[in-house]
């Protein structure tokens, strides 16, 4: 309880770190903030060319099928990989001054989250331009799904950012893990294509129901499955609690390890 109160006290630090991150990310580049939009768009173009022209998937409006899953996935994987370095890159600060260390991974994940929100502007622009259309009632579930994903990404980043301090290889290992994880999640293909005997993997994967829910809302324009949503909320909370517990245990040795 005290920890939460303290975190609330440091909210301004959180805000200023997120601002600094978003502003600093593309600071010296010519296109600047536009990269936030260009990045997912280019990825979309590549995947669309591959899967609707070369390896034909036969899925109708494949670009949209992919786009609504890819953007959330990019958010998750960048939190997973980049978030693991949150403490290590902030070590100058950590060594010098006291603040709740948990602010660093949280602010990183939030800035990735804000980036995803910007990408969603592109999604809605595409939906609008192509006349793909939306189901407004289903859309009400979108913020909920986003928050669930945020909780999950946060919980995992709390663990990885603390572990990376003690074990630097983790950053590189996570790069590989994130690649494998993407292909083990229904990002570029629908859940229905997964063979029966591999299905258990997808049920273990907390990202499967989240990706599926995004697609349900935006691509199929239907309500997401409520019981899976409920279990995803629980799972997200479990990850956050577990993540903060591990983080709290490990943070005491940060300064001496770096």
């Amino acid at each position: 309880m005290n920890k939460i109160k303290e975190l609330y006290q440091y909210r301004q630090m959180l805000v200023s770190l997120v601002q600094k991150d978003l502003r600093g990310r593309y600071k010296a580049s010519v296109l600047g903030f536009l990269w936030t939009f260009i990045n997912p768009l280019l990825q979309l173009v590549i995947y669309t060319i591959v899967f609707s022209m070369i390896m034909r998937s036969g899925i109708e409006d494949f670009y949209m099928f992919l786009f609504v899953a890819l953007v959330p996935w990019i958010f998750f994987s960048s939190s997973l990989v980049g978030g693991s370095m949150a403490i290590v890159t902030g070590q100058d600060l950590v060594k010098k001054i006291y603040f709740p260390r948990i602010v660093l991974p949280i602010s990183y994940v939030i800035s990735c989250f804000v980036n995803m929100l910007f990408s969603f502007l592109v999604i809605f622009a595409v939906i609008f331009i192509t006349g793909f259309g939306v189901n407004l009632y289903a859309l009400l579930f979108l913020p909920i799904v986003m928050v669930i994903e945020l909780l999950l990404a946060l919980g995992i980043s709390l663990m990885t950012s603390a572990l990376t301090v003690y074990f630097r290889d983790l950053e590189h290992i996570l790069g590989l893990v994130s690649m494998m994880w993407m292909y083990l999640s229904p990002v570029v293909y629908p859940m229905e294509w997964v063979p029966e005997r591999l299905l258990f993997l997808f049920h273990l994967n907390p990202m499967s129901p989240i990706i599926a829910a995004y697609r349900q809302i935006l691509y199929y324009k239907k309500f997401p499955d409520l019981s899976t949503m409920a279990s995803a909320v629980v799972l997200g909370l479990v990850f956050v609690v577990l993540g903060s517990y591990i983080f709290d245990k490990l943070q005491k040795g940060f300064v001496e390890e770096m």
Partner: peptide, 9 residues
């Protein structure tokens, strides 16, 4: 930013 690190709002 510096004051925020000290926990000021």
């Amino acid at each position: 930013t510096n004051a925020a690190i000290f926990g000021m709002t």
